[in-house]
Amino acid sequence: MIEVQEAVIRRGSFELHASLSVPAGAICAVIGPSGSGKSTLLEAMAGFIPMASGSMRIAGTEISALTPSDRPLTLLFQNNNLFPHLSVEQNAGLGLRPALSLSVDEKRAVADVLSEVGLGDLGARLPAELSGGQRQRAALARALLRDRPVLLLDEPFAALGPALRDEMLGLIDRLVLRREMAVLMITHAPEEARAVAGLTAVCAHGRIDGAHETSKVFANPTPELSAYLG
């Protein structure tokens, strides 16, 4: 589903070289120290930073020339995913229509997805009235409504406590795989990778060299990964 081949992304004096591929229905963890370029990869895939050379394909289509809204993916940020003056329903509804005028069927679809992520009776609330975990659930609901084949997670659960984080990861696991989406998930925590990600890509010194089976990655860590894990 995701195929990144020898992508080179420059940001100031920093340069990231990345190659990896993730099939549909798989979760791939991207692990590595801060500043190694994990977010840079996701931002380039989402169209927020240009790619200097190489290729990025989703379901066989080259995406590097598309505008952010035309790319077949959704990127969830660590925070500020919601518009603060719109209700949860409206925020989620933006995934169907950016102009916010929903038909009866579309409203029903929004309600269905909200109850799927566990926000069934909170649709009328404003983001400020929700907990951090509930806000990320609302953002996830919008990503599901957008119905794009790829989901990119830029540590959206990093600010949550361990129990809540496990719960959110479980939710991602269930919902996303049911929809056969491919997921790239940035993480600092090896146990997160082990818990839900079948694949793991190590990002170090501005390089990502492929996604490999998680159990093998941790059984035989590269020198960079052992240095990071300590």
Binding site: A46, T67, P68, S69, T74, L75, N81, F83, L86
Partner: peptide, 23 residues
């Protein structure tokens, strides 16, 4: 404004008058 807000809008394809109203 948090920079993510512009990015979320760009990703959702919110432009013109909708962007004015929302952001």
């Amino acid at each position: 404004l948090p920079p993510e807000r512009w990015r979320v809008a760009a990703q959702l394809g919110i432009e013109g008058s909708a962007l004015f109203r929302l952001v």
